[in-house]
């Protein structure tokens, strides 16, 4: 039956709405082949129908099957594109190798372009009010508070903040710092968050 493969492809993609599957090269090639053969058969019949109008119905059925295949393929690619877009926000500009393998070469090219575009947009943000861009990927949900209270657990020494301030992290001193600055230190166990 016509367009059976493409439905399979879509169903497969739909089974996994959140994560991205490997690009199904094989199946796509089969579908494109099917489309080519449909097109060829139509060409032949269309040339023949000049005299014989009985073949017209057949041509029309094949043509709609062709169009359906095309639409479904585009839907498949589009849904993948949306997923790749979220990849950029989740992983940042550089994809881990196992995720990279799931994309086709064209998709990867698109990803790089999207990534560059986003980066240049983020750099341009807020320049009129004196910021050198804002990293939009940092807080995808509005943070509950920009600052957190931390207790210093060890003598760490000086820490330079992004805005140029220097603070001395000494044991048993408390600080109220931007959340983004502390996270690595909290993971290292130098700071402890106080709730």
């Amino acid at each position: 039956m016509f367009a059976e493969k493409v439905i399979e492809l879509l169903k497969e993609a739909e089974r996994n709405p959140v994560t991205i599957d490997p690009f199904n090269d094989d199946k796509i090639r089969q579908i494109v082949e099917e489309m080519h053969s449909l097109f060829r058969m139509n060409m032949n019949d269309a040339n023949a129908t000049m005299e014989n109008k009985t073949l017209w119905t057949t041509v029309q059925v094949r043509h709609s099957a062709l169009e359906r295949n095309k639409r479904c393929l585009l839907a498949y690619l589009y849904s993948r594109m949306a997923k790749i877009k979220t990849l950029r926000w989740e992983f940042g500009a550089i994809l881990p190798p196992d995720v990279r393998e799931l994309l086709s070469d064209d998709e990867y090219e698109w990803f790089s372009k999207y990534s560059t575009n986003l980066a240049s947009y983020m750099r341009s943000l807020g320049q009129d009010i004196g910021y050198n861009g804002i990293d939009l990927t940092e807080n995808l949900k509005p943070p509950k508070s920009l600052y957190i209270e931390v207790l210093c657990m060890a003598d760490y020494g000086k820490l330079e903040l992004e805005d140029g301030d220097v603070i001395l992290l000494k044991k048993n001193s408390r600080h109220f710092l931007p959340t983004s600055e502390c996270q690595t230190l909290i993971r290292q166990g130098i700071l402890k968050q106080i709730t």
Partner: peptide
């Protein structure tokens, strides 16, 4: 959001 350093 006044960031501070507290030292006893």
């Amino acid at each position: 959001n006044v960031s501070y350093t507290l030292v006893p």
